[in-house]
Each structure stands twice: as structure tokens, then as C-alpha cells.
Design a protein around this nucleic acid. Structure first.
Lengths: 347, 347
DNA sequence: ACGGCCTACTGTACCGGTACAGAGACCCGA
DNA sequence: TCGGGTCTCTGTACCGGTACAGTAGGCCGT
């Protein structure tokens, strides 16, 4: 069941049938109607996408590469809102989104073996094997929440400025014993020596730097802890690391809202009142931040806008590659904003 | 830069280079090493996925079709956990997941134009155009949360039994004025006449039937309302429809946890105490249900297991299609369980 | 010395489309 | 009457791989 089948049935050339489906203005309306009718009758849906992809050099799909486990990435409302926004923005351009894992999945490596027109690289280890394949395939790429690279379009959020604003807010409230709570699947968990902070992830590093930007000038030497993931269990564990110390901090700056929820919960369990005895600041301003108790002071980033920008940049890069133009490798940095709610107070 | 380029460079046939990448046991290790070295040197990553897809008749990707807007589907933790689970389960089989929108997106219709080996159909309108294309392409399909169809593998949850258990619980607590709060993007919003209930969506219908299974024998005639979506705003609006009536119900059974959160919030705003004056039951038992205040009584469904089952069924269907075997069209129904927490009490 | 069986590699015919140049037919103005 | 332009339709040459049926040589047993 191919174009030829239809062509034989109608008595035209295969090329004309192809045009009937793909270039309606290349043949008369009457003949086109006859062809489509014959195709319908024979149960022919349309040109085979795989064959078309080979001939035209373009599949209608782009990938999105995530380093973290997919299961995990999909339990975070901030990340999923971002994906949703991307997918929605991509739809009108006719591009579909394919999820790429970088986990070692036996002989098949999606980043190498799946046909696509381009890819979004989201919060990935820059040395990962999967990213290496994407780069070597010379696919149009857009980096998101990723260390900017010359010549590659990047979309980032001003994590550092947001984190600094959060820390300045805490300092202005008079806090001197400040805890920083990072998260990340890889690397050491537990208390971290201040002069030996290694963080994986561009966003983590930027946020840490932003905090220190404000704390150091104020002469505040923070206590730094690091937990193993973003689930509530881990966050509570990380929070206890800080809250059960004799020199318990009066304020905790968290890598994300998800981490902050763990701190709120741990504080509740330990009978520490927020914001009376402990101030907590999140990051992201996800949909739950305003609903938390107390309502969470946090740094807002617009993930929907980030998705929109990433999708637009990728669509542009793919379109440019199709026409052979060079890609405009713009580096976009979206603003962040401190949202003061009820989880922070003066000492 | 094709197989031929490498073949010429090494002085072997194109076929041998192909085998070096795809069938290592077809040539000597020494020659294979030489070929791979030459490929590496020339910057050849591997066989072109699009060409391979055409030749082998299999792309490494499967689709997932959603009727609702992607942006919306991605703001619901229950749905996203399900996607995450699917993706994770699919990874070891070497299949990637492509998101398919059924929204009319101009000339390109992903369900028709994207190359894939099979697809998951999740909670879709059975008459949708996109689904029609998938069916006519004769792709291996698996239906999830969808009206079961003979000859197609289906994965469902026992929504009806779960809803019945929820309603029985409410009846056992002595409630006689019971509200039902449905949701759904299409169709009428507002109060619905009991003998004129039309619901879109298989899950909605099953849950409604389950509630009525328990309420009717008890002689309880429910008040039925319907809201326009699952966001908190809509849910609050729907809740007020029920709670501001003179004959305000003493219990509300909700289509989902997301809807129940809206009821909890609206109750708070109206000064109605839960569970003192109002009992609320959710559905899904998402990650937030136990954290809600008061902790939500709800019907648990295991979305991770649902994802696992769906992925397994699809992988099996794709594998069967490859070997030409007939697909075993098993209809799986996963159990549900009523989880009684703090949001329900006796009248 | 010879048939038979591995192992390692090769040649050809596809997979199902699209690009592009070209060939008639037809209409128009000069 | 004829040159040139437009509108339709056609023929051929790809796109970059894989399947499968060879073929050549080496090794074995007899």
C-alpha cells in the first residue's frame, strides 16, 4: 500500500499522487479529489512518515534531553509545567516533542538512534554521553538551564540575581545564622564544608553563588547542607540536618520550593514555628508556594515563559537549519523576582 | 557523510560498514575496530536514524495521544506521574516517548505525520480525528483510561468500584444531602439535572456510575455540578455552586483530588468547617492528598503501576507487530482502594 | 585429493517517498 | 501564425540505510 498503489488505481503517475497529498496546488482540484477518494477507498492514510523523513531530511519531531530520571522529572510541578509549555508552544509549528533519556538503556541510545530535527537540552550534565551524541549529530540544539556555550542558543533564568535578592532579604531581616539547603541526585549528601562546595548543575551553582553574593559582604558564613533528591522524604532529612544542630540557623535558603516544603514540614515536626523561630525561602514559585502554610516566600521564575522562549528558539534553530542559514545563537536570560510571603520574618 | 564515505576510506563494502555498527558478530573484531576508528575520525556518528527507520520499518519511538491541551495535562501531578512512569518503563525496551497533540495545529497532524512504532491512547475522545489516524495507520495501540474496545489491549482502573466505595462510605456516615462535583473541559458547566447527566470521558462516566451505584439504593438523590477544568480557580467556582445553595450538601464527592482541593478551599473561604459541617472525598490519591488540610479522604489508584502496565502492554504490542504475531488484546483493570483520612466524618 | 561446512565479506534489490527538470496542452497577445 | 507563458502532469535520480543471497577462502575429516 504505497503511493504507487493509488497511482495505478487512478491511472496517474506516483508523483502526482504524492503531490495530491503534499502539494495540493500542483494539480487540478478535480484530479486531486479523485486521488484522495481512491486513497480513502483503499485505506491509504497518507505518505509514510519514515519515508518522507528520509526524502525530505526532516522528521516532524524534536527531542528534549533530561539527565535526571524521567520518573523523577515528572514528579516536579515546576519541571512539568515547563514541559507542558514547551509542547504547547511547539504544537503550532508542527513539531512534536520526544522524550530522550540519557540513562544507559542497553544497546539503544535515544540521543543517537531516534530521528529528530533538533533538541532541547534541559538541565543536563554537559559531559553526558547522550549530549555528546546530539552535538556530534550536529542537530540544532537549544540549551535550557544549562551553562551557556558560545554558538549555541541558550535560555536561562537569572538564578543568581534571584538568589541574591533572597539572601539580601534574609540579611535585611537581621538573620546571622543562615542555612543553605541544596539538592541534587549525584554527589555527597550531608553537611558540606563551606570552602569545599561542589555542586552539579548550572542552576544549583548559580543559586549558590547568588546567595553568597549577599551573605559574604554581610559577613554571614552560612551552614551548607545537601540532600539526595527533591522528594519530600529527602527534603525532610536534609532539613533535619540543619534544624537539629545546636547552632540551629534562624533562616534557611532553599534550592527549590520542593526543598522548602520539606523544611516547613520538618520544622512542624520539631515544633519550630515558621516564621517565628525560623524563616524559610524557596525558589521557583511553583503553583503550591502560595498555598503552603505559611505561604512561602520564594523567588519567582516564569516557567511558562521559559518554555515559550525555549520552544521559540528551537523552532527558529530548526527552521534555520532547514534553509541552511546560520543560527542566531542568542543567549536569553529571563528575570527572577523575590516574592515575599509569610514564611520569613525579622529575627 | 554516509556509510559509503566510511567504506571508501577503509576499503571495504558499504554493507560491511553497516554491519560494523548494527551487527558486530558479522565481521572480525579487528576489521570492526578499524571501521569504527575511521568513522570516529571522520566524525560519523552512526547510521542515519531516518534511513534506518525506512529500511527496517521501525523507528525507536512510540507516541502518546492526549486529547486535552498538553499544557493542561502537564499541570496535573497525577497525569504527569503516569507519563513519568510510562517513560521510565519504556526506556529499557529502547522505545522513546513522543507527545502527540490532537489539537488542530494547521497542516501537520502529528498522529498522521510522525513516524512511530505504536501509540498509547490516554483518556481521549474515541471519535477524535487524531485517534482515527492512528487506527487507520494500523499502529499497535494500547488504550488507557478509555472505553475498552474489542481487539485492542486496554489498561483501566476500577473507577466504578472505587467511586462506589467512596459513596458507600459517605452513606454509612449518615449523609443524605450529597453533592457530586464533576469536571471536564467540554460540555455544560453549572448545576446539572440528575436525569440529564452527560459526561465526556470514560473515567468520568465510570466514577459517576459508581457513585450512583451506592447512592440510589440508599435513596439519596445527589446534587450534581460540573466545572470547566481542573485548575483551582474552576474548582472553587464549582464548589461554590454547591456550597452556596440553601440546601447545601453535607458531603461532596469529587471527580479528582484537584477538584477536592478547590472544595476544601472554598469551604475555608465560606467558613464551613471540614469535616465538621462538610465531608469531602477526592479521587486519585495524588502525592498532595495526604498533605492537604484536613488530610483528604480519597480513592487511591496506582498511577505508577498503571504506567508500568501501559508501557508493558505497548512494548508487547510493538514487539508482536514486528514479528507479525497477533497481539494478545488483554483488558487489564487495576484495583482502586478507598483511603479514609480526615476530611470525612459522620453527620 | 576432494566434498562440505564454517567464517568473513560483497552485490544487488529493495524500503516509500520527494526534488527537479521537462513535456504537452492551452491560452494569450502581436 | 507564431513565440512565450502558465498550468498540469510525468520520468528519473536520488535520500541512506538494511535484507538476503551469494562467493571466496580456509579448515576439516576421510
Amino acid at each position: 500500500m504505497t503511493l504507487q498503489t493509488i497511482a495505478d488505481r487512478v491511472g496517474v503517475s506516483r508523483m502526482t499522487v504524492s503531490n495530491a497529498f503534499s502539494k495540493p496546488d500542483q494539480l487540478s482540484a478535480a484530479l486531486r479529489a479523485r486521488i484522495l477518494a481512491a486513497a480513502d477507498e483503499l485505506g491509504y492514510v497518507g505518505p509514510d512518515p519514515a519515508a518522507r523523513a528520509l526524502a525530505t531530511g526532516s522528521t516532524g519531531a524534536v527531542g528534549v534531553l533530561l539527565t535526571t530520571s524521567l520518573r523523577y522529572a515528572f514528579t516536579d510541578l515546576v519541571a512539568t509545567s515547563f514541559f507542558g509549555s514547551i509542547a504547547e508552544q511547539l504544537a503550532p509549528t508542527g513539531l512534536s516533542l520526544t522524550l530522550l533519556t540519557s540513562s544507559d538503556s542497553g544497546p539503544i541510545i535515544p540521543a543517537r538512534d531516534v530521528a529528530m530535527d533538533g533538541a532541547l537540552v534541559f538541565s543536563c550534565d554537559p559531559t553526558s554521553e547522550a549530549l555528546g551524541y546530539l552535538v556530534r549529530r550536529r542537530l540544532p540544539l537549544v540549551y535550557v538551564d544549562q551553562s551557556p556555550v558560545e554558538g549555541v542558543p541558550c535560555v536561562n533564568v537569572d538564578d543568581r540575581a534571584g538568589a541574591r535578592a533572597a539572601a539580601e532579604h534574609i540579611v535585611a531581616l537581621g538573620h546571622r545564622r543562615v542555612g543553605l539547603l541544596m539538592s541534587g541526585a549525584h554527589g555527597p549528601h550531608g553537611m558540606i564544608d563551606t570552602d569545599d562546595i561542589k555542586v552539579d548543575g548550572y542552576a544549583s551553582r548559580q543559586r549558590l553563588l547568588g546567595w553568597l553574593d549577599a551573605l559574604e559582604p554581610a559577613g554571614v558564613e552560612p551552614l551548607v547542607a545537601r540532600q539526595g533528591g527533591d522528594d519530600l522524604e529527602q527534603a525532610r532529612w536534609g532539613a533535619r540536618l540543619l534544624l537539629e544542630r545546636p547552632d540551629r540557623p534562624t533562616a534557611v535558603l532553599c534550592f527549590s520550593d520542593a526543598v522548602a516544603y520539606g523544611v516547613l514540614q520538618a520544622a512542624g515536626e520539631l515544633g519550630i514555628s515558621v516564621p517565628g523561630e525560623l524563616s524559610v525561602v524557596g525558589f521557583d514559585d511553583g503553583p503550591l508556594a502560595a498555598q503552603a502554610w505559611p505561604a512561602l516566600t520564594t523567588v519567582r521564575q516564569d516557567v511558562v515563559e521559559k518554555g515559550r522562549a525555549a520552544a521559540a528558539a528551537l523552532a527558529a534553530a530548526v527552521a534555520a537549519a532547514r534553509t541552511g542559514e546560520p543560527v542566531a545563537a542568542t543567549h536569553l536570560v529571563l528575570p527572577t523576582e523575590l516574592i515575599v510571603r509569610k514564611s520569613t520574618a525579622a529575627v
